[in-house]
Design a protein around this nucleic acid. Structure first.
Lengths: 215, 215
DNA sequence: ACAGATTACGTCAGCGGCTGACAAAACACA
DNA sequence: TGTGTTTTGTCAGCCGCTGACGTAATCTGT
């Protein structure tokens, strides 16, 4: 009761701080190596030894190699959710989501300079990671759906609409991202344009008989 | 020019037939074992030895363990596409898709008795495979988009709507499937109900301000 | 400051997915 | 039947990932 007398309620301790630092270091090393050499060509062994620990330790902090990326992306998602909640309350849900991604993107571009924030950029750059992105879309969907539910006052567990909206939204985003990849463009502005184009097209795509005046 | 003088245009040959048979055998063995012992607990070694070949041979026919399931599911997708094309031409695209899955489901239930046809049922039964399903939704999307494009006379490469429609459709399906899993139901009828519920909800979910009369 | 309980780490050994290389067997064609 | 091509088995090995166990660092109570 002398060396480190921290606040009584806050039990931080040197142990947990070290743990947090280790986690940060591992993630940073991983993202750095992914960025430099590509995701596939980076081994967990390399990540670990870059931090000076054993491979086993890496797997004590992350359940898989993919998990590193996922965790980084989730930080980004979190910001998208708050961007959604910050939109004016009178915007319809789908519109709010559409506009939130615009606000959100500004944040991404700012953070893109930092390794941590550029995880999403990493995902958009290396095709192997698109898989990871898609694979975990369930988690992302649920998170987004909760935010939508919170905003609209609808219970996401009882009403399917928040989940559905999130799913449709992400589907439109994925489609836009796919088209952007195939176009060969590297410009993030084009990516946002592709996003908005798809999002604005959704209502008529599911509603009308397309092109033909009626049918 | 004596032993096997087949049709000039058709070069089948004993070799290719053996190859096709081997592929069939491997897939059947794999699906059988997946069904019996679960996907994770089945090793590629077991699959190979059930057919009496080496593990290496398995990987000459399928690029990965997941690939077996994917290929099986793609056969099912193909039928969904023809179900779509068989719908009356005056149905709007999204409606046609909605109705196609009803027709399609009848086929699935019939084929569910056979291992080959039940791959989709396998996917809906073992949670590990949902991942595979989701992971490859890009391929499924593209295939569906092509069918939608063919039906509507819209070029899927130039116009984003077919791809978008397919993506939204599959997103609604995935959401329904997810809800069905969480509900704990094993009834396929409930699954179809969940599908239709989501599909019918999509237009208003993306269009209106929900619940509140106007906004 | 010290002893004992926790917790984190390294080491090792091993499984399973997956691949390249090479030689042997199966096949096609003449 | 002999020759050239394709398919297969064997082997060796990388990589992601995990369990077990011993050791060292940290925390706790005195």
């Amino acid at each position: 009761m002398s060396t480190t007398s921290a606040e009584p309620g806050e039990r931080v301790g040197l142990r947990e701080r070290k743990k947090a630092r280790m986690r940060e270091s591992l993630m940073e090393a991983a993202l750095h190596l992914f960025h430099e050499n590509g995701y596939q060509r980076t081994t967990t062994e390399e990540i670990a030894s870059r931090v000076g620990v054993s491979q086993r330790t890496f797997f004590r902090y992350f359940t898989s190699k993919e998990d590193v990326v996922l965790e980084a992306v989730e930080d980004v998602d979190e910001h998208l959710c708050s961007a959604l909640l910050a939109r004016p309350a009178d915007e319809p849900p789908f519109t709010a989501l559409r506009n939130a991604i615009l606000d959100h993107w500004g944040y991404l571009e700012q953070e893109a300079l930092h390794l941590r924030g550029s995880a999403m950029g990493l995902v958009t750059e290396s095709p192997e990671l698109i898989e990871v992105n898609v694979r975990y879309c369930h988690r992302r969907q649920n998170r987004l759906a909760r935010a939508v539910g919170e905003r609209t006052g609808v219970d996401p567990d009882a009403d399917p609409r928040p989940g559905l909206l999130a799913a449709v939204f992400l589907a439109a985003l994925n489609t836009g991202h796919q088209a952007w990849c195939e176009s060969g463009s590297r410009s993030t502005e084009d990516l946002v344009r592709a996003f908005l184009h798809r999002l604005d097209l959704v209502p008529e795509t599911v509603a009308c008989p397309w092109g033909a005046p009626r049918g």
